[in-house]
Write a protein that binds this DNA or RNA. Structure first.
Length: 267
DNA sequence: ATGGTCGCTAAGCGA
């Protein structure tokens, strides 16, 4: 008996404002699990009822007022939940849940890594220092992962040349600096984890998950970046049978600036 | 080189 599970990740930039497109996405793509980032929603105001009504009975959240916030919603039971704080502050940037897959538990880490501000010098820019410290802590904590595990979410770094519209023009823009690209590779290798998206799209091809709100016509300009990621522990890699960016969702009414990413496991 | 647009939550911050 083969098991099949689709996991989605999406920086939603306010789950309450965008509930209509979350419902549309769930109805259209029917993922087993959806990991949301930037819910911007205190726990008491989270829209549990409409998501349960959409078929997602199992919901684990870590939210705060105004900023950040993550949530994992699932058709399958979520048997274990962990909310980790990073960098000794109370930002809600991580939630891990266990979901049954293939007769055992799959741990799904849902991350929202700090964006890091604009200034490139971490001595001047506290937000960039926070981002680098967060990555250091991720590396230590996720290192030597031995059980079936996925890392998904908005990691706010586009690591490879073809993950941005112009690697030259973005080399001094936070999200694609050589330092961040190297640090993210260090985190990935510490798992170690396999970059599942790049297993399905060759390194030579452009691949984006985010398009700025500031472009007049995001689709025509197509100045995107791959800020959202799906990583798996090596034994899971051959079980990933599909990964895709749902680019159409960037064009829906009242969109997030991020598109969802779908990854399907079969085993 | 600069400014461009969003979503909080009620002027400015974060992205």
């Amino acid at each position: 008996m083969t098991d099949r599970l689709t996991i989605a990740t999406w920086n939603i930039n306010s789950v309450r404002l965008r509930l209509p497109i979350v419902e549309r996405f769930l109805k259209t793509y029917q993922p087993g699990v959806l990991c949301l980032q930037e819910t911007k929603c205190p726990d008491g105001n989270f829209p549990f009822a409409p998501l349960r009504k959409a078929g997602y009975q199992n919901i684990e959240i870590s939210g705060q007022k105004g900023y950040h916030g993550v949530a994992t919603i699932s058709k399958r039971p979520l048997t274990e939940t962990e909310r980790r704080k990073f960098c000794d502050n109370s930002d809600c940037r991580h939630i891990a849940t266990d979901v049954p897959f293939c007769g055992r538990h799959l741990r799904i880490h849902n991350f929202y890594v700090p964006a890091g501000g604009d200034e490139l010098d971490p001595h001047i820019n506290d937000k960039f220092k926070h981002k680098l410290d967060f990555l250091d802590e991720m590396e230590d904590w996720l290192g030597a992962t031995t059980f079936p595990c996925m890392v998904v979410g908005d990691l706010n770094i586009a690591p490879y040349e073809q993950d941005v519209w112009s690697t030259k023009q973005l080399s001094r823009v936070v999200s694609h600096t050589p330092l961040e690209r190297e640090r993210l590779e260090d985190v990935r290798k510490a798992g170690p984890f396999v970059d599942a998206m790049r297993c399905f799209v060759p390194m030579e091809e452009k691949l984006y998950t985010w398009w700025s709100y500031r472009a007049k016509d995001w689709e025509a300009a197509n100045k995107g970046r791959r800020l959202d990621h799906v990583w798996v522990t090596p034994p899971l890699a051959p079980k990933v049978v599909n990964v895709e960016v749902v680019r159409e969702a960037r064009g829906w009414d009242c969109p997030s600036d991020h598109a969802p990413v779908l990854a399907t496991l079969e085993g």
